[in-house]
Computed example of a mutant assay.
Amino acid sequence: MALRNNHLAIDNDELMRRVENLINASKNRYRITVIVANRAKQRRYEAPDDMEDGWMKPIRRAVIEMSDELTAPEIIGDE
């Protein structure tokens, strides 16, 4: 991982590992996909100027945030 604009840059391999962790943590792939998409949409409209020249796309940011929050059951709870 490399440092970029004071943020931790995550390469594609690390991002894919995080995606797999999210999918494995949920019993329902569709539900986790929708949750990530909604988080990305929310982030896109909250801070459109915070895209850092296209490096941190909303979907990428959502996956990173959610994979960091895997310990919070309300994020991926299947109830």
Rank of each mutant, 00 (worst) to 15 (best):
A2L: 07
L3N: 11
R4H: 13
N5S: 08
N5T: 02
N6L: 08
N6K: 05
H7A: 13
H7R: 15
L8M: 11
L8A: 13
D11S: 10
D11C: 15
D11M: 03
N12A: 14
D13W: 10
D13L: 15
L15Q: 11
M16L: 12
R18G: 04
R18T: 02
V19K: 02
V19Y: 07
E20Y: 04
N21C: 09
N21L: 12
I23Y: 03
N24I: 01
N24H: 08
A25R: 08
S26H: 08
K27L: 07
K27S: 14
N28Y: 08
N28H: 06
R29M: 10
R29Y: 05
R29D: 14
Y30I: 04
R31E: 14
R31W: 01
R31H: 06
R31Q: 15
I32E: 02
I32K: 00
T33P: 04
T33G: 10
I35S: 07
I35P: 00
V36S: 01
A37E: 15
A37L: 13
N38E: 13
R39V: 04
A40Q: 09
A40I: 02
K41S: 15
K41W: 13
Q42F: 14
Q42P: 10
Q42G: 09
R44C: 11
Y45W: 12
Y45N: 10
E46G: 01
E46Q: 14
A47T: 09
D49H: 06
D49K: 06
D49C: 02
E52V: 12
D53N: 09
G54Q: 04
G54F: 08
W55G: 01
W55Q: 10
K57L: 09
K57V: 09
P58N: 01
P58F: 04
I59A: 07
I59M: 12
I59C: 03
R61L: 13
A62G: 03
A62I: 03
V63R: 02
V63F: 02
E65T: 06
E65F: 06
E65L: 09
E65A: 11
S67G: 11
S67M: 03
L70S: 03
T71C: 07
A72C: 07
A72T: 09
A72D: 14
A72I: 11
P73N: 06
E74S: 11
E74M: 12
I75R: 15
I75S: 06
I75G: 00
I76S: 01
I76Y: 12
G77C: 02
G77Y: 05
G77W: 01
D78P: 00
D78N: 06
E79F: 04
